[in-house]
Amino acid sequence: MRRPPVRETLLGFGFCVPALAGLGTFVIFPLFQAIFLATRGTDINGNPSRSVGLANFAALFTPEFGTTLLHTLLFTIFVVVVGVTLPLALALPLTQRLRGMRLFRTIFTLPFAYSASAASVIWLLMLDPSMSPVNWLLRLAGMTAPGWTTESPWALITVAWATTWVVAGFNLLVLSAGLAGVDEQVLEAARIDGATGLRGVSRVVLPMISPSVFFAVVTTTLTSLQALGQVQVMTDGGPNGSTTTLVFSIFHNAFENGNNDYGLASAQGLVLLIVGMALAAVQFGVIERRVHYR
């Protein structure tokens, strides 16, 4: 190939400058800064101070941080499993030629309109002892409602459910789009052959929409890994740290209660970075394969 003219090259670089400047200043450079900060302590004014060596990384090998990672894992598993199977169980019946299916689809996607903080506030009110319709129903059934956000195993489930509620709306869109690409006769065939229920779904339908399912799983995993607002609004990491996830721990160490422990928060951020990059790499790999198949 001929060397491109200088003017052309300059123009090309010029067009890239705004995007490169923005991303360079606020994504790429901070990455290296985070590595640097992870080796620093904090002075009495709350500013990064002298080097503390690898102490912040050593703090990642403590039982406390292990518990944090465990909460993150449990939270993510709940959100991914329920947040993908529930919309799948809704999207499949919606493919049938029945009245009102479009209306149902719209209803099921509405929660996706909620931001993290809006969803958290609404579910706090839904479960608030003074007005909770859920508790009222439970009492009608003769049951006592647990302290949804104040008792240990329930708090994590509640926060995970509020996240799932939103995520399921989005995943329904994704999975419906995937199902729209499946031949109707194949769906019908699966149903007639007695392959209804779980067997038909797992053997016939799932393989055909596997790219959509995979996309839903990966994006849901990334979303739940980064779910901060839900925890901060609903439980603030409690009770007794039982809802402290990785991102909440970063936020808590750096910005809450004047902790100002930027070093530890940065070291934890690097852990998140590694996990997130690994997941994204998997996602990219799958896209490549998908493009190849087409």
Partner: peptide
């Protein structure tokens, strides 16, 4: 635009997608 480093710049952009925001919020 025909220019050198086109691939490199593209992959630089792609790499930024993979960075979770919470990892760089402190800096």
């Amino acid at each position: 635009v025909r220019m050198p480093l086109r691939k490199t710049i593209f992959w630089l952009f792609m790499a930024t997608i993979m960075v979770p925001y919470e990892a760089i919020v402190v800096p």
